[in-house]
Design a protein around this nucleic acid. Structure first.
Length: 234
DNA sequence: CTTTGCACCTGTTGGC
DNA sequence: TGCCAACAGGTGCAAA
């Protein structure tokens, strides 16, 4: 039995937590740290469920079921941590959770000071704030009326207030809608997320802005697709 | 220290 | 129909 299987064998699951986009499954002697990357999924399946392509890990549960980790692109990860879990290098330097009180305009403004990086890349930096991926970065910037290419240090305090609030709003609304299914994402219940219908800019290149009808602009910024309205965002 | 761009992978799509 | 390039929801790290 290889490393993680041997280290975790027979232990009870004491609890499950989340930090940023990492899932923490706490066992008795340590914690499993799991990230789904771009294409990973976890499914609860019967013990005799046939193996499918890109199934990588099974956690065998007392119930007779399996918790199965499938990840075609293999950008996901699984680590076994012992000791002070939050002190692990992958977790220790993460910024605040966007829906916690510490994340607000004052925090964001102070962390924009002196930063020449584009604001979109800045809010996607997990050392600044966690949980803001490529879809919601574009969406939050649209809602705040800020162009994604603006240098972070150029934002006023009022703009940081608006942006922090937009990040919180867009994430809250997206969670409420079950997430954003672009292609094949489904939630634990197998249902897609419906936030795609509420997107203002993401994957809407050349389509009319929902606010002003100007064609939505697409560009690549930091190797990621970015969408914005030249009229509504400055 | 900040900033930039690459690397890690497979699968799908669209143009020729 | 087939081939090939471009692109996809993330993020850690090396290099400049």
């Amino acid at each position: 039995m290889p490393g993680i299987a041997k280290a975790t064998d027979g232990q009870r699951i004491a609890g499950v937590r989340r930090r940023a986009k990492y899932l923490l499954i706490d066992l008795e002697l340590g914690s499993l740290l799991l990230h789904l990357g771009m294409s990973g999924s976890l499914r609860v399946l019967p013990a005799d469920a046939p193996r499918r392509l890109h199934d990588h890990v099974d956690l065998q549960l007392d119930s007779g079921q399996l918790l199965r980790f499938n990840d075609p692109r293999r950008f996901g990860s699984l680590h076994w941590l012992t000791g002070d879990v939050m002190a692990h290098p992958l977790l220790a330097t993460l910024g605040p959770e966007p829906l916690e009180d510490q994340f607000d305009g004052a925090y964001l403004h102070s962390h924009c000071r002196g930063r020449r990086v584009a604001i979109k890349q800045h809010i996607m930096n997990s050392h600044v704030v966690v949980g803001v991926g490529n879809i919601y970065a574009s969406e939050a910037l649209f809602r705040a009326g800020i162009r994604p290419g603006r240098a972070a240090q150029s934002l006023t305090r009022a703009q940081c207030d608006a942006l922090a609030q937009s990040i919180r709003d867009v994430l809250t609304m997206a969670i409420r809608s079950g997430g954003t299914t672009l292609r094949d994402y489904v939630g634990v219940d197998g249902a897609p997320g419906y936030f795609r219908q509420k997107l203002y800019v993401y994957e809407r290149a050349d389509e009319p802005c929902r606010n002003c009808s100007t064609a939505i602009r697409h560009r690549v910024q930091g190797q990621r697709s970015t969408y914005y309205c030249t009229q509504c965002q400055s």
